[in-house]
């Protein structure tokens, strides 16, 4: 079946895009349920399990904890438990994952 499809002209054109798509998907899927640290535009940081994302980079973290920016002198010690939290893509400044998760990920790819 796959071979038949590749003979089709239009399918041929899409093919490289398709593979970029599946690569990206694979990459993201591998991160699912891993710890993720997201810094937001207002300086707060959320740490939680990566559960869901979409094209606009809106991210949903599970069991998320909120950390204030370190400059805030007194209330930074304790994180606040947020639970399920969605961070709109345009408020995502940076994303970090634990390196060990990443390494096994690259191996997998």
């Amino acid at each position: 079946m796959a071979a038949d499809n590749e003979e089709n002209g239009t399918e041929m054109q899409i093919e490289p895009e398709e593979s970029a798509y599946s690569l990206a998907r694979h990459k993201l899927e591998h991160l699912l349920n891993k710890s993720m640290r997201i810094r937001m535009t207002d300086g707060r940081t959320l740490v939680g399990l990566f559960l869901c994302t979409d094209r606009d980079c809106n991210v949903i973290l599970g069991s998320a904890q909120e950390f204030l920016k370190s400059t805030d002198s007194f209330s930074q010690a304790e994180p606040r438990v947020l639970g399920l939290a969605m961070i709109p893509g345009h408020h995502v400044v940076s994303i970090q994952v634990e390196s060990e998760n990443l390494q096994s990920g690259t191996h997998g790819l």
């Binding site: 970029a20 798509y21 990206a24 990459k27 993201l28 994302t53 979409d54 094209r55 893509g89 994303i95």
Partner: peptide, 8 residues
Amino acid sequence: FKGACKEL
């Protein structure tokens, strides 16, 4: 991550 998201 952002790059991968764009592919979705």
